[in-house]
Design a protein around this nucleic acid. Structure first.
Length: 729
DNA sequence: TGAGACGCTGTTTTT
DNA sequence: CAGCGTCTCA
């Protein structure tokens, strides 16, 4: 499944001839495809044939005699790399399959297995996913005895986000907290301590998180010119997709890998940048020409996907962005209906409307697989999923929870992980905690011995177990011995571990283990496709299989409706697209209150709407059920309200008595007086902040956001739910 | 020291 | 609606 970086010796196939011509490309695409050596930046609007351009560029390079092994294709997901190589394969032949394509993280993984020893990592390091990282934070938090005291101490999730952002933006903690997590400023020293312990923990136990893959690759390329030169010689042509979503570390990696030849083509769209939470900045793409002097810039503006009716609306959405983007799309696809806006009374009515429409459109001849429902967050589709199930409409959900994040899957993986990396302390921790009568204290005692030993397994075997748990402990020791002493296939390891785990499994998940065991069966399917344990373990973090994996089975071309988060829908297109839950507070998310965060929400809507070819629906429920069953009234998303009236058609459900009134109304906060009433912070009000001291409100930016000037710290944007602002009399 | 019960909270997006 | 912290009992 995983391509080896340095595999060689496939039978040579002759390179293709004369595929690239003016007939299958427009002027701008042709220019990009046939550009000579040196750096090229392609600004490619939505639906402008970006993938086509990259695929033909590969064909062109091969035609010109570049060996496929010397081409590197960096993409955002593994899926899109596979898709592009597949399309290239159709165009030419298997020759193109020898191009190395994958995500930055996957390529970093391959390179670091080979070169990581320069940094003190052995080649069997283990990759941590987000929940692994959070687990380490928890261990550290309790060992440092933080968190218990003050209840407002940030959660592991927030901590890991902060650590990640600081790395990806190459920003000191203090500055990051001041800019984005002001309410946590008082914890700066504690957070720094946690971060330092976290880094040390990972290094000592041969673990790398997602950011480490990138940062360590950058470091090894930067600090070891021999490595850099070897890599640059191997990849003489580098193609990068979705460049607007790269962060500064990734930009550096590209620069270092292209050292000496600068044959880099990057493709992207500044108005589709939606990954700032990962440190991406759309300005990166604009700065590309400064990093690579002499860059040729080519802009693709003709849209081949959507009808003009749809483009008129999407253009209007992006035109209202505060940051002006570099292009305006046009289409020659005539006809098509105006996009529809539907305001539902509540979530149930929204779900019913969508289901009815889907049935209607499906019966008119559009396959289900050509219809997609897109939303901001994974849980926004719950109600709809119920409704679809009632109507027996098959769907495939993308994004959201992953198979490998469920506890029982992590349990089984922990046995395989210590076989692959005996210093994987996190896996040890998890595995030992599964023993009956063994808790955190006992585990810490065992781990303390393992940590400094040269042979963790021998130490474990010799550990004096207490009577209450000795029996279970000995079984575990036996299991590990079996796993270690036999050369097995990945499936073999899995079956052996599962055999042992079954008893524990039924004990700890006694109320719902039958449901969970279906996941274990799925994992069995997946692992059977691997012949190497390490690459299986890598993929559980780098390319997590989805719960409803259509993988090996023949379901591949079945006709299913697509439900997807917008982030997971990037780069895809459908005949009909529904964008749902366009309610203030849901989309845009209530989490996004800083101006630049609101702007990203707008780009997100733009990405969603530009996925549609023929039909586009925007729906929003006015009433949203909140957690405590109190009703909350949300207004229409401001982004929708801004669309000029003539561009869309508004619909009412037959019989609905609801007024179609699209005024944006703020959500009525149902949390009582959690924080001060915003109306008491009008411009001019004197306020006191626990960290910044006294200041004066200059401007009210949003319902819960104000801009305050502090004489000692300058102008700050504050959110009333977080900042503990006090009003001065 | 571990296990289980109870009540509170806060909930984006992905490699 | 799960994932916590806290509490109690074994």
């Amino acid at each position: 499944m995983q391509q080896s970086l340095f595999s060689q010796g496939q039978a040579p196939i002759n390179p293709p001839k004369k595929l690239v011509s003016r007939e299958n490309l427009n002027q701008a695409q042709y220019e990009a495809v046939t550009a000579g050596d040196g750096p090229v930046l392609v600004i490619a609007g939505a639906g402008s044939g970006k993938t086509r351009t990259l695929v033909y560029r590969m064909a062109y390079l091969l035609e010109r005699g570049v060996a496929p092994e010397n081409i590197l294709l960096l993409t955002f997901t593994r899926k899109s790399a596979q898709e592009m190589l597949h399309r290239a394969g159709q165009l030419m032949n298997d020759y193109s399959q020898r191009v190395l394509g994958g995500t930055f993280h996957a390529v970093a993984n391959l390179l670091l297995r080979r070169h990581g020893h320069h940094l003190g990592y052995s080649s069997n390091f283990t990759i941590l996913d987000q929940s692994d990282s959070e687990g380490i934070i928890n261990l550290i938090k309790s060992s440092l005895e933080l968190g218990g005291a003050g209840k407002r101490f940030p959660t592991k999730r927030v901590i890991i986000n902060i650590i990640g952002k600081a790395v990806n933006k190459a920003m000191p903690f203090a500055e990051l907290l001041e800019q984005q997590y002001l309410h946590l400023y008082e914890y700066l020293p504690d957070l720094e301590r946690i971060r330092n312990h976290y880094q040390k923990f990972k290094f000592e136990h041969g673990l790398m998180d997602y950011d480490d893959l990138l940062v360590n690759l950058k470091t090894v390329l930067h600090d070891f010119p021999a490595v850099r030169d070897e890599v640059a010689a191997r990849f003489t042509n580098i193609l990068v997709d979705e460049y607007q979503d790269t962060n500064p570390v990734q930009a550096d990696i590209v620069r270092l890998m292209a050292h000496g030849h600068n044959n880099v083509m990057v493709v992207g769209d500044d108005s589709q940048s939606i990954y700032s939470f990962r440190g991406a900045d759309f300005r990166n793409i604009m700065e590309f020409p400064q990093i690579f002097p002499g860059t040729r810039v080519i802009t693709l503006e003709e849209n081949y996907r959507s009808s003009q009716e749809i483009l008129t609306v999407t253009n209007s959405i992006i035109e209202q962005a505060t940051e002006k983007y570099s292009k305006k799309l046009f289409s020659n696809i005539a006809g098509g209906a105006k996009p529809v806006v539907f305001g539902a009374r509540n979530e149930t009515e929204q779900a019913r409307f969508i289901t009815d429409k889907i049935i209607e459109i499906n019966q008119s001849g559009v396959p289900l697989a050509e219809i997609a429902v897109l939303f901001r967050s994974g849980f926004h589709s719950y109600k709809l999923e119920l409704e679809l199930t009632n109507h027996r409409i098959d769907f495939d959900k993308r994004g959201g929870l992953k198979l490998t994040e469920s506890a029982h899957i992590k349990d089984v993986l922990s046995y395989l992980r210590v076989i692959s990396n005996p210093y994987d302390n996190l896996a040890w921790n998890r595995m030992l905690l599964l023993l009956d009568k063994v808790g955190p204290k006992t585990v810490q005692n065992i781990l303390a011995k393992i940590k400094d030993s040269t042979d963790p397994f021998a130490v474990l075997e010799a550990y004096p177990a207490a009577k209450s748990w000795a029996a279970g402990f000995n079984k575990l020791v036996d299991l590990l011995k079996t796993l270690r002493e036999n050369e097995l296939t990945p499936s073999g390891y899995y079956e052996t571990a599962l055999d042992y785990y079954q008893g524990i499994f039924e004990r700890i998940y006694h109320d719902d283990y039958p449901r969970r065991s279906r996941d274990l069966d799925q994992l069995r399917e997946i692992i059977s496709g691997y012949d190497n344990l390490q690459s299986f373990i890598d993929d559980t973090a780098l390319d997590p299989p989805q719960p409803a994996a259509e993988s090996a089975s023949a379901l591949a071309n079945s006709d299913k409706l697509i439900l997807s988060t917008i982030h997971s829908a990037k780069g895809l297109e459908w005949d009909t697209v529904f964008v749902i839950h366009l309610t203030e507070g849901k989309f845009p998310s209530s989490q996004a209150f800083l101006p630049e965060e609101r702007e990203e929400e707008r780009r997100l809507l733009y990405v969603a709407a530009t996925r549609a070819r023929n039909r586009l629906f925007f729906t929003f429920p006015r009433e949203i059920m909140s957690q405590d069953r109190k009703m909350t009234i949300g207004g229409i998303s401001p982004f929708l309200a801004e669309i000029p009236a003539g561009m869309v058609k508004t619909t009412v459900l037959p019989g609905s008595m609801v007024r179609q009134d699209f005024t944006a109304r703020p959500i009525i906060a149902d949390r009582g007086a959690k924080s001060s009433d915003p109306s008491s912070f009008l411009a001019g009000t004197g306020v006191r902040h626990p960290f910044f001291g006294e200041g004066k409100v200059e401007k009210v930016i949003g319902p819960r956001t104000v801009e305050v000037f502090f004489p000692r710290h300058g102008r700050k944007t504050l959110h009333l739910d977080y900042a503990k602002l006090e009003r001065l009399k």
